[in-house]
Design a protein around this nucleic acid. Structure first.
Lengths: 192, 192
DNA sequence: TGCGGTCTAGTTACATTGCAACTAGTTTCT
DNA sequence: AGAAACTAGTTGCAATGTAACTAGACCGCA
């Protein structure tokens, strides 16, 4: 019964290395640290369900239920030794092995020829604009300070990476837009 | 009842622009055109289910069932006008709007600080090697010929894009590896 | 001619994820 | 006082992913 790995499970285990925490606290922490950019915790449904499954699998255990007057009781979870192990294993696999996750943009690209080249150009132009904004946002994040101190670089690697990739995409689109304008790249629309 | 978009659904509609086809034929075509790099058709389960749902939604219709002596009967599907419309709408949204799909590598990166910096370096070094191979494979694909003719560029945009992104990732990793070696980037392992 | 391997063409079952909506109390702002 | 936003979940269904199983056809070769 090897537990199937996922970014959500990794994030939960990873955060619990930091100390025991209750579900809502995990979600808040992910958001506070900006990790919600790389881990999907939008709907808490998945989070709660994942926590249950992790407990069943023995990777985390429920500790005392904290009782604050004004909040409903909150069960605090701890990382088990096995959980710690699994977390590091996953980390190693994820870092070493590039894996195709079928994002939608390349899939869309592979059907551009259904559109007239001018339309394709307009659409990609819009994407280019949005990418510019996104890059600016990410770069802002790289420069944010907490208590007057910049965040240490090792805690921002994923953002750095996202910038690198987004910039590469933007450059590639620029090249394509150029070739569309000059007519170097063109096609007759419709089924190949 | 707007049909939820997905790369698989897009691929099916997109391929049917080309002419009516039976399920297995769709899968084969996706593989032949190398689109299986960007559209997940590994298990046919999803494909068959998607076809059923697309038909229920009226985006495709079952035509005659082709009867070849030696094969089981194969129902041929056609694109409907609505299907054609939806396909183009999706294409426009996909091309214009960058969307976060939470790949696992950045998620992993955001927990590197749990590992000792040297280990992180080794793991990323392995990734770098595999990326090199992957890039070579993709570039080979860009240069393949069919009947002595190179494939037209507009049919290879998604591969071009994948190369651009993979190269950017490789360069970023190189920079990180450099900074790890020089000690510019470091941290003390364990929970932050 | 029989054997293994591969291709064609699916189905069944179960695990996991994602999305939407609903409950219900609390704090904060205006 | 009322509206918005936060805390802290639950329920239910739709969609996707993963594994494994069936079953006939074809292909090379020993």
């Amino acid at each position: 019964m090897t537990f199937r790995r996922s970014t959500l499970a990794l994030a939960i285990l990873g955060l619990l290395e930091n100390g025991p925490l209750h579900p809502y606290g995990i979600q808040r922490l992910i958001k506070q640290w900006g990790k919600d950019q790389v881990v999907n915790v939008g709907q808490r449904t998945s989070l709660y369900r994942m926590i249950v499954r992790l407990e069943e699998a023995g990777l985390i255990t429920a500790g005392a239920t904290e009782q604050d007057e004004r909040y409903p009781e909150r069960t605090v979870y701890h990382l088990t030794d096995e959980g710690r192990e699994v977390c590091l294993e996953w980390l190693a696999e994820i870092l070493t092995t590039p894996r195709n996750e079928f994002p939608e943009f390349p899939a869309g690209l592979s059907f551009v020829m259904l559109l007239p080249p001018e339309t394709a150009g307009e659409l990609l132009g819009q994407r280019r604009e949005r990418l510019t904004k996104r890059i600016a946002e990410l770069q802002l994040e790289l420069r944010t300070e907490v208590d007057g101190q910049p965040i240490p670089r090792f805690a921002l690697l994923e953002t750095e990476y996202q910038v690198a990739v987004a910039v590469a995409e933007a450059k590639w689109i620029d090249a394509v837009l150029h070739d569309l304008r000059t007519g170097t790249l063109t096609w007759t629309p419709g089924p190949a």
